[in-house]
Nucleic acid binder design. Structure first.
Lengths: 220, 220
DNA sequence: TTCTAATGTTACAAAACTGTAAGGTTAGAT
DNA sequence: ATCTAACCTTACAGTTTTGTAACATTAGAA
């Protein structure tokens, strides 16, 4: 959602966002801004702080009482005070006019990534090839098929995803699963890997966890 | 870790970082940069891309083959090309010289936050009052005491944490737990809340989940 | 104060999870 | 080509998790 009074900028921004596969909505009615925002419930807000007759900082403060929708503050001058202020009011990032479109896109991407992975259960998904992995619930989705991972499988899969294309040693996994093995059978890990592979296979992902004998495992 | 050839800047940066509760190490031996980095294994790297006799881009590329340590690229000119390049080589952010110290600190904070929550199992902790919550493993730590949450408890606690000081309706929780209840007893939620409260109480957190009768629950 | 719908607690059994053991397979060194 | 350590698979039983039911408690409306 774009909150900005200069129509030219609004149009450019809309175009820019749409060209990059975002949906863009421009807020028209500044009077009922808060209500509008909450109704639309956008994924991210670009908020110009210098709109006449709209107290952007107050709006942000009020918004923060009800929602954690990420906000990127758009400021006119480059002073640090402004930046610090916007951030203390709860903005997730700031950018000064005139902004470079590519930089703005990078910032938007970064904020979305940051806030998505930071605890919004519904959207906390990680993508691997054609499948989505819901970290909190431990559910893998592919198309309409869903597979539920157990806690151990979740931990292993998370770790492998986080180290894609890198060899992960069995020791590393043992440490993560059982705090460096008090008295757990070495085979327990093998079994858990086996089970994870089985589930991945069910949704058509055979051979994605590769064994590097003597070294560990690798997720391609 | 600071990778930078101008000694004056190194010193200023070190001071800045230390004053803000970071540890700072300056890389001296540019020849064995990669090896050094991997040995030290810093939490974040500030990499000046314009050091004579050091190909920063190649270094980053090679580093990325072995590790996901976050890197902030320091560039001299503001051109987009540079930025785009650094990012495609795997940098997590970029900043142009001369940089404003406060902005640099903000960027560092943002990158650390982003990369920490993005799947580094060991460090993926969320802090609530004096306790730490390991999202992946579902373990709550307080001092030397540890409590293990079950999957359901984890989901509820995560959601409450994500909506601190906001009322969370029972419906919301039901949806998250059971995809808007096929045929699950309404009481199942109550029981799960009860169990979570019990565990929180064990580590001295009584009455942190408040009931708002007719509305929902709230984590204070 | 009284009443009642909303919420809480406990015990229990079905279901899911997980480490172990026993035996099978395989990559790669010799 | 052979051998063996490394890894895989399967079945099983102990343990944990979880929804249900039955009953208890409580906040707040009237």
């Amino acid at each position: 959602m774009i909150i900005e009074d200069e129509e030219l900028i609004c149009n450019e921004l809309s175009k820019l966002l749409k060209n990059n596969n975002y949906e863009a909505i421009v807020l028209k009615d500044f009077k009922n801004a808060l209500k509008e925002i909450l109704t639309v419930s956008p994924d991210l807000i670009l908020l110009d702080i210098n709109i006449p007759f709209l107290n952007g900082e107050a709006l942000l403060q009020n918004l923060r009482k009800e929602s954690n929708i990420p906000v990127i503050m758009v400021t006119s001058n480059n002073s640090e005070i402004d930046e610090a202020l916007s951030i203390s009011y709860g903005a997730d990032d700031y950018i000064t006019k005139p902004y470079n479109p590519n930089i703005l896109l990078l910032r938007i991407g970064a904020v979305l990534k940051r806030t998505k992975t930071n605890y919004n259960l519904k959207e906390n998904e990680l993508v691997y090839k054609e499948l989505k992995f819901d970290i909190q619930k431990g559910i893998i989705k592919k198309g309409n098929r869903e597979i539920e991972l157990t806690k151990n499988e979740m931990i292993i899969f998370s770790y492998l995803l986080n180290h894609q294309n890198k060899i992960v040693t069995r020791d590393e996994l043992m440490t993560i699963l059982w705090d460096n093995s008090e008295y757990v059978n070495e085979n327990a890990l093998t079994v858990n890997i086996s089970r994870l592979r089985g589930k991945l296979k069910e949704i058509g992902y055979e051979d994605v966890i590769d064994t590097r004998k003597g070294l560990g495992y690798i997720l391609s």
